[in-house]
Computed example of a mutant assay.
Amino acid sequence: MGKFSDRPDIEAAAQKVRPAIGAKREIQHLPTVLWEGETVDLLATGQYGQGVGLVALTDRRLLFLKHGILSQALEDFPLGNISSVQWTTGLLMGTLSVYASGNRADIKSVPKTHGEALSSRLRMVISTPPAAAAPAAAVPAQAGAPDIASRLATLDQLRVAGAITDAEYQERRAAILASI
């Protein structure tokens, strides 16, 4: 099967969702809507508003892209504005609800395995404090214990879902444990 993109980050993300891909045109158009230096982490297909398109999680935002012949749509949610993520699922598909800036956006008909990986990764990203925040050592160990456990559980889910490699898992696990 052919390549989806010349960009390694987009190609790697597209290869993970290959069985459910219905958005080849959107994947090919994706580099034109990315910001300079922005990298793609995960992809999925889904329905948002009146269109079916591509859901992309990057290092800076979650975006929905529909690039059809007759209509196009782009909606993005900067990661810093996302306060909560909800994943509800049926037998094969689910709905990813994103709460950002006081609003709720529902992305429907997301394939179950890709939606689980996407929601887990989003939860991990929005729960991880920015690098400029106070060091973890300043937080008493007792107060951080449940947070550490939930971060480790989320990390395990990401690895099982195939959203991160074993090397990424080991690196992030070590970082979480080092923050205790």
Rank of each mutant, 00 (worst) to 15 (best):
D6W: 01
D6E: 08
I10E: 01
I10D: 01
E11N: 08
E11V: 10
E11R: 10
A13M: 02
A14N: 01
A14E: 02
A14W: 00
Q15F: 01
K16Y: 04
V17G: 01
R18L: 04
R18K: 14
P19C: 12
G22A: 15
G22M: 14
A23I: 07
A23K: 03
K24M: 11
K24D: 09
R25M: 13
I27A: 03
H29E: 14
P31C: 08
T32H: 13
V33G: 11
W35E: 15
G37E: 06
E38W: 09
E38I: 06
E38P: 07
T39E: 15
D41G: 01
D41W: 06
L43W: 03
L43T: 00
Q47E: 13
G49A: 09
G51S: 10
G51T: 09
L54R: 06
V55A: 05
L57Y: 05
R60W: 03
R61V: 07
R61K: 14
R61Q: 13
L62K: 02
L63G: 02
F64M: 01
K66V: 08
K66D: 04
H67N: 08
I69E: 13
L70S: 14
Q72K: 12
Q72T: 14
A73V: 07
E75T: 10
D76R: 09
D76W: 10
F77A: 09
F77S: 04
F77L: 10
P78M: 09
P78D: 07
L79E: 06
L79N: 04
N81R: 11
I82F: 03
S83Y: 00
S83G: 14
W87I: 03
T88N: 11
T88L: 11
T88S: 15
G90W: 05
L91V: 10
L91I: 04
M93W: 08
M93I: 00
T95A: 12
T95F: 09
L96P: 00
V98N: 02
Y99R: 06
Y99I: 08
Y99K: 10
G102C: 03
N103M: 11
N103T: 12
R104Y: 00
D106V: 00
D106S: 15
I107V: 15
I107E: 04
K108F: 06
S109D: 05
H114D: 07
H114T: 00
G115W: 04
G115D: 01
A117W: 00
L118I: 05
S120E: 10
L122E: 00
L122H: 05
R123Y: 03
M124Q: 13
I126F: 02
I126R: 08
S127A: 12
A131P: 04
A132C: 11
A133Q: 07
A133G: 07
P135G: 13
A136K: 10
A136W: 13
P140S: 12
P140Y: 07
A141R: 14
A143R: 12
A145Q: 15
P146D: 04
P146Q: 05
A149G: 05
A149K: 11
S150R: 14
L152I: 14
A153E: 11
T154V: 11
D156S: 11
D156H: 10
Q157V: 09
Q157Y: 00
L158A: 09
L158G: 04
A161V: 02
A161I: 05
A163H: 03
A163K: 01
I164A: 10
D166N: 03
E168A: 13
Q170D: 15
E171K: 13
E171A: 14
E171H: 14
R172C: 01
R173S: 04
A175Q: 15
A178E: 12
S179E: 11
S179V: 03
